[in-house]
Amino acid sequence: MTPLLEVSGLRAGYGQINVLWDVDLTVEEGKTTVIVGPNGAGKTTLLRTLMGLVYASAGSMTLHGQTLKGGKTWDIVERGMVMIPEGRMVFPDMSVLDNLMMGAYPRAGRADWETRLERVFAMFPRLKERRGQMAGLMSGGEAQMLAMGRGLMENPQVLLIDEPSLGLAPVIVDEIFTILADLKAQGLTIVLVEQNTSRALHLADHVYLMRSGKTILSQPAAEVDLGHLHDLYFARDGGSAAVG
């Protein structure tokens, strides 16, 4: 079976500064792939490169066997891959409802935006209560939920999520991971970037570790040894890096 999303030898960066050096990633349909790694490892840049927001200078990346290189972000969205950026990237001077409706902007979404909205409101009842509020006035947790709801309005086949628990209270983090587990149970293909390793591992089918712009570990979640992972994560390289 060909993987849904396949990346190999990917190199990318901003202008003269290269961030991703040699990234390999394979995402199977219906599976949850978790990418962990310290700050500055290039995890967010990887997601942004997949979405066409950052220019890929070398390597290959394919979705459903078709290349993503040189693709425009808005076309990639229509091909079924959606990225949920961190909560600070909601539209602050638009209402919660308008933010959500932007998720249904592609032509295919406009016809049944109301059905999608009901589904998102069912998942995040708080967004329904706050729908008239300006997004910029929300708390960090609410903004994160809005970002997730807005992404789900796009009806994704592949969902890329960037650090959903960043800077949030533990109660909110619980809530967010419950929702991620629901989405996984519904069969959605998820690529999750997280710094909260132990939390993310519970959800994962497959785990990647990134450091300094490279994927240095690839393992099925069941085989991951948390101690070893943390050694690699914090660069306490006693043992040799297991490259899968």
Binding site: M51, L53, V77, P85, M94
Partner: peptide, 26 residues
């Protein structure tokens, strides 16, 4: 600006260009 798809998209682009692209806006 407030009640049409294109009007909302215009506000979205003005608000956060990258986020607007992620919503499928050119």
């Amino acid at each position: 600006l407030n009640h049409t798809w294109q009007g909302r998209a215009l506000r979205a682009v003005a608000s956060n260009r990258d986020a607007a692209k992620l919503m499928g806006v050119n």
